[in-house]
């Protein structure tokens, strides 16, 4: 009940915090996850490449 009264007294705060802040937070989390995924994938690929180079060096030796 108190939330009902509060939202009617502060409609813009309700709209901003409830909708736009949440949406922007969701976008920020998604962007952070995409950047993190890129970093760990690049690290994995580099490690695999280095492991391949080491294996080739050992084979040549």
């Amino acid at each position: 009940m108190s939330l009902d009264i509060w939202m009617r007294e502060n409609p813009l705060t309700y709209v901003w915090l409830g909708s736009y802040a949440v949406a922007l937070l969701v976008f920020a989390v998604e962007v952070a996850m995409v950047i993190h995924k890129r970093k760990i994938t690049l690290r994995q690929v580099r490690l695999m490449r280095e492991a391949g180079d080491d294996a080739r060096d050992e084979g040549a030796a």
């Binding site: 939202m7 009617r8 409609p11 309700y14 909708s19 949440v22 949406a23 969701v26």
Partner: peptide, 20 residues
């Protein structure tokens, strides 16, 4: 994942609009 997040935002903001 992006589509799922937009569906979530749609439902979430719809609920916030529906209440008042």
């Amino acid at each position: 994942p992006t589509g799922a997040l937009f569906a979530f935002i749609s439902l979430w903001t719809g609920a916030l609009w529906g209440k008042p």
